[in-house]
Each structure stands twice: as C-alpha cells, then as structure tokens.
C-alpha cells in the first residue's frame, strides 16, 4: 500500500534545478533510501515533502490525497514526521520535554490553558515509552545542549516518532556519528514499528545496503534509478556517476 507518493516534482532556484521531475513511492513498512552525491537535491526533496519548501510543479500525496499546498503542520497531522539534518532541537529544554512536545502535538491539547501539563499522565507516559524505545531514558532530565552529538541524533528520531507517525522522513540520520554510534542507530531504525513507511537520505553505503528495501539515486535533481538494492547496485549509469567512486 502506498503511503507517500511524490509525482513529477519540480523545483528550481533561478537557473539551478534542484528537483527535476522526481517521482517516487514509499509503502507501509518500506524503508526507502535516497542516495546521491552532494548537491543532488536530497535535502531539498525532503523539505518539499515535509512542506518546509514549496515545489514549483508536481504533487506530493499522502494516502492518495494531494498535500502539495498544505503547510508543514497540516502534513504532520496526516501522519508525516521528519528529522532535520542541521536544525537544532529544543536546545534549552530537557530531553524528556523535547519528546513530550512531540507527543503533545498529536495526543495532547495545546490550547488547554487550565490543566497542568505535568498532570497529563497519558502524554507523559507515551513520552517515556518513546524514550525507552530509543534508549534515552537515562538522559531524560538532561538539557539537550548538554548531551552528546550522537545522543542528539537519536533524540531527533525520538521526537519525530513521538506523535506516532505513519511516514517518517530521515535526513542523514547517521551523519557525523562514529562507527559504533552508527551501528547502534541502524539497530534502532531496524527496530522501529514495522508499519512505518520510512524515506531516508543516507551517505554511508554500508548503512544503505543493510537497511534499504528500495534505493533511489538522485543526480543533479534527477532520478537516475529507483529499484531494489541489488538492481541499483548493478545499474551501469549509477556505477558510473556515483557508486564507482566508493566501491
């Protein structure tokens, strides 16, 4: 079942085409990985799917309905969640409070002025569950600014998962992590709920091939290939322009 569909997406800044006629699908339970050299337009694509950037043409569909013109928060309410590569978390808040806000967005009532947030046991309990799932419980009371970079990357995923999304966009979740942290993060991504459709950008080929159900190769804004990992790995053009360098 297709959860997320991107259809003939177009985006350019002046003469620079960052997205050219990109079409791809993410199904329930699928881990779809986008690879491509720097400047291939990967993050721009994620931003257009998330709603942080508006495409010039084409469509983004969630569950068959067109969301191209919807604001990020409206897409989030349809079950789309994302992580950011560079955007910081809620730096001055605790790890728990970061996740709690993610839970509150979906399960709480942000226009409730009267009840104390601490009294919403359902929201707090779910936040603790998510922290458990991501193995962050020990850090719950620490301020984000004071935890390690690797833990922050994990928290990124925790915050995105907090609202129980159906589609998760991960923008280079392992960038800047040590090999040990990377392996740990792969385990975490593997253990995510199986109904989740995941679209992730990744550079590390080891990670890509150990996780991907499907790989899409972007090259200067264009889809070069989109298929099962072994088929993509065998693709001549892909080998020429991209993989050749790292194999």
């Amino acid at each position: 079942m297709t959860l997320l569909r991107v259809e003939s997406l177009q985006k350019s800044f002046g003469s620079l085409n960052v997205t050219r006629d990109v079409t791809l699908d993410v199904g329930a339970g699928e881990k779809h990985v986008i690879i491509g050299p720097n400047g291939a337009g990967k993050t721009s694509l994620i931003n257009q799917i998330g709603g942080q950037m508006t495409p010039d043409g084409g469509r983004v569909m969630i569950d068959g309905s067109d969301v191209t013109r919807l604001a990020p928060e409206q897409r989030a309410r349809l079950g789309l969640a994302r992580t950011f590569q560079k955007n910081t978390l809620f730096q001055r808040l605790s790890v728990f409070e970061n996740v709690r806000l993610g839970v509150q967005a979906r399960f709480g009532n942000s226009f409730d002025l009267a009840q104390r947030a601490a009294a919403r046991t359902d929201v707090n309990a779910r936040a603790r569950d998510v922290l458990d799932l991501l193995r962050l419980t020990a850090l719950a009371e620490r301020r984000v600014a004071s935890i390690s970079y690797g833990d922050q990357r994990q928290l990124e995923i925790a915050v995105a998962l907090a609202g129980d999304p159906r589609i998760l966009l991960l923008d280079e979740p392992t960038s800047g992590l040590s090999p040990v942290e990377t392996r740990q993060l792969i385990e975490i991504i593997r253990a995510l709920p199986s109904h989740l459709g995941i679209l992730m950008i990744e550079h590390d080929m080891e990670v890509v091939f150990s996780l991907a159900d499907r790989i899409t190769v972007l090259y200067y804004g264009e889809v070069l290939a989109s298929d099962k990992p072994d088929v993509v790995a065998a693709n001549e053009r892909v080998r020429d322009v991209y993989l050749g360098a790292s194999f």
């Binding site: 809620f90 806000l101 942000s110 947030a117 919403r120 929201v123």
Partner: peptide, 19 residues
C-alpha cells in the same frame, strides 16, 4: 499548561514546532 509548554517550544524552534 500544555499551552505554555507549546509557547516555549515556539520560542526555541518554530520550524520544528510546525514539523
């Protein structure tokens, strides 16, 4: 309240809040 917590989130990171 939860409203107040949301405001603080807004102060810290609006892009994230919308996402």
């Amino acid at each position: 309240s939860q409203f107040g917590h949301a405001l603080v989130g807004l102060r810290e990171n609006e892009t994230r809040m919308r996402a």
